[in-house]
């Protein structure tokens, strides 16, 4: 009886983990995503996108603030105290207007910084057959700063 219960528990564990991992592994074939929602069972989509010559190397996108007089204020990740991944996520959150993202950005900027617009720019490096080349950064998106974060309204 005790043996059967133990074997049942182990069977449930190995069966469900292997089955779930198999489903997540082949999900992209059927149009599903192999995400990390069910971590520690997750998709292993590591370095999986393909790229072509001339593509910008999307290390992370750069943030810039634009003051009312047109002055550009760079906002590097170091100024926000964020590692690369979370800086990347913050840029995404700002673009999506996620609650809390603007609050976090302005809490880290020097007091009195008045920005009317935020720009998202590409990292200025592209890939070629011969290796990396410097390429002018392009503006990928711009969006206005909500009034509540403006110093002079």
């Amino acid at each position: 009886m005790k043996t059967n219960i133990y074997q049942g528990i182990i069977s449930l564990f190995v069966g469900s983990v292997l089955l779930l991992q198999a489903i997540i592994s082949i999900a992209p074939v059927f149009g599903g995503t192999s995400g990390s929602r069910y971590w520690p069972i997750l998709g292993y989509a590591m370095y999986s996108r393909s790229y072509s010559e001339g593509d910008f190397v999307d290390i992370y996108r750069l943030l810039e603030g634009v003051a009312e007089d047109g002055t550009i204020i760079p906002i590097p990740k170091e100024s926000l105290g964020l590692h690369l991944w979370h800086y990347r996520n913050l840029v995404r959150d700002l673009q999506q207007g996620r609650k809390g993202a603007f609050e976090h950005l302005f809490s880290k900027l020097p007091p009195g910084t008045d920005i009317v617009e935020i720009r998202v720019k590409s990292f200025p490096v592209a890939v070629t057959r011969d290796g990396p080349v410097e390429k002018d950064s392009v503006v990928l998106a711009t969006f206005p700063v909500p009034n509540r974060f403006r110093v002079h309204q």
Binding site: Q21, S25, P28, S34, G43, A45, M46, S48
Partner: peptide, 12 residues
């Protein structure tokens, strides 16, 4: 795990 890695590369 390796199957997932190769499937994601080939499907993308």
């Amino acid at each position: 795990m390796y199957l997932s890695a190769v499937v994601s590369k080939l499907t993308k």
